[in-house]
């Protein structure tokens, strides 16, 4: 020990201070404040959600306990005419689903194709141009998309299928435009999933003599399938909840129809029209839009839960 210590400088000044004092906890005020601030931020978002659910549930309860409508009628009826006491949500839900399905038919294949192109084919230069353009698409206000549907997409559809087939307000044009609107969401989430697939799998495929297409479609895509499925589900939620486009272009009157060229009102479109009009606050009409809101909330909640489940359980482990 003496030999080892001789070569080192003496540390007398340090050793004079008691080790207990050296190691004593000291308060860090800044640390505590920041932690509290971050906690409050987190709590606010959770409390907001709780508040929304509470309001939705409370007003919906008034609606269902009013005696004017039974739960069975609400969930099975296909006529929505508050004036004559008809509250069948399928009149609205059907339009919502029509719009969503059309939007998905547009957004899923296109979004996936864009994602595969960006992640597997595009050179760095092309990517650096294409990605910002897609982000611009995501930044356009939805009201602009709404008028794009009404003043561009609808005339296009009427030109193709004929004025007597396609009504001025129709779910098809709203659906197509919502598909374009959620395209950046689908493509960017799907691209993240594809890019997360390790390069070693691509190398393995190329090393076996696979072409780019074989590698992308048969190796990378299956390995990213859970992330892509999650992207699709989030996109569906987004399409169901989209309001402005359908309010402008889909039609202003509940109608139970499977024809996408006819006008129909979606759940969100109905809520926005009714709440924009002059309704008294304690009327059954007013309460009904909360019930619709609650159903919408439940649908998107279930979709989000499914999406979380898909990500967690269908993840193809690749390492």
């Amino acid at each position: 020990m003496a030999v080892g210590a001789s070569s080192r400088p003496e540390v007398t000044s340090q050793t004079e201070v008691d080790i207990t004092t050296q190691l004593r906890k000291h308060p860090r005020v800044g640390e505590t404040l920041i932690e509290a601030f971050l906690f409050i931020c987190g709590a606010v978002s959770i409390l907001t959600t709780v508040g929304i659910v509470f309001v939705l549930a409370e007003e919906s309860l008034l609606f269902f306990t009013s005696g004017e409508v039974s739960l069975t009628e609400f969930f099975t009826g296909t006529v929505w005419q508050p004036a004559i006491g008809q509250f069948g949500i399928w009149a609205l839900m059907n339009a919502t689903f029509t719009v969503t399905i059309i939007a998905m038919i547009v957004a899923l294949p296109l979004g996936l194709a864009v994602a595969i192109y960006l992640s597997e084919y595009a050179s760095l230069r092309v990517r650096s141009i294409l990605k910002p353009i897609l982000e611009v698409l995501a930044g356009i206000p939805t009201v602009v998309y709404g008028y794009f549907a009404l003043t561009f997409m609808t005339p296009v559809l009427r030109n193709i299928f004929g004025d007597n087939v396609v009504q001025i307000y129709n779910t098809a044009s709203a659906g197509i435009v919502i598909g374009i609107l959620i395209l950046p969401l689908v493509s960017s989430m799907a691209e993240d999933a594809l890019s997360a697939v390790p390069g070693s799998l691509r190398q393995a495929a190329f090393g076996l003599g696979a072409t780019k297409l074989e590698t992308a479609v048969q190796v990378v895509l299956p390995a990213a399938v859970s992330g892509i499925a999650a992207a699709f589900i989030v996109a569906i939620s987004r399409a169901i909840g989209e309001t402005m486009v359908v309010a402008i272009a889909a039609g202003a009157g509940p109608k139970f129809t499977f024809n996408p060229f006819e006008a129909a009102e979606t759940m969100t479109g109905h809520i926005v029209r009714i709440s924009g009009g002059d309704l008294s606050y304690d009327s059954i009409d007013y309460n009904s839009i909360f019930a619709i809101g609650l159903v919408l909330f439940c649908i998107t909640l279930v979709l989000n839960i499914i999406s979380r489940y898909v990500v967690a359980h269908f993840r193809e482990e690749y390492e």
Binding site: S200, Q203, A204, V219, E317
Partner: peptide, 13 residues
């Protein structure tokens, strides 16, 4: 015609 085996085993999932 010229196959390859890599440093880290990389079987497909």
């Amino acid at each position: 015609r010229i196959g390859m085996v890599f440093q880290k085993p990389n079987p497909f999932p």
